[in-house]
């Protein structure tokens, strides 16, 4: 029983360490663009999109969709699977970005 508790404690600590190493990366949405338009991150990172425009935007990929992000609001997601994620704003046809997860 005691060893089981100890193992659980060690596991929880390790999970905490892994979580602590994950970075938070930010993409600004300003001037009707994603800045930066192309961002490379590590698996497990949390990406935050901050809408600094006066109009709503979305961050939309075939596997995820922020829905409308209001002006001054943010939306975030943790990316665990490696790959290229080209995304766009569903509202404004000229807005595109790419997230690369290593």
């Amino acid at each position: 029983m005691k060893s089981c508790l100890l193992a659980s404690l060690i596991f929880a600590m390790l999970c905490g360490m892994v979580e602590a190493e994950a970075a938070i990366q930010t993409v600004a949405i300003e001037g009707m663009r994603y800045v930066p338009e192309r961002l490379t991150v590590q698996s497990g990172d949390r990406i935050v999109w901050k809408n600094q425009d006066l109009v709503p935007h979305t961050v939309t990929h075939e596997t995820f969709d922020s829905q409308q992000i209001a002006p001054e609001a943010s939306w975030s997601m943790v990316f665990r699977k490696s790959g290229n994620y080209p995304y766009r704003c569903k509202l404004h046809p000229g807005m595109h970005g790419t997230l690369i997860v290593r």
């Binding site: 001037g31 009707m32 663009r33 425009d53 006066l54 109009v55 404004h92 046809p93 000229g94 807005m95």
Partner: peptide, 19 residues
């Protein structure tokens, strides 16, 4: 600053309408 900030959205709307 608000007027400067709003300008890109008007450009995007113009391009969308022209398309």
């Amino acid at each position: 600053a608000l007027l400067v900030k709003v300008r890109p959205s008007f450009i995007a709307h113009l391009e969308h309408a022209q398309h």
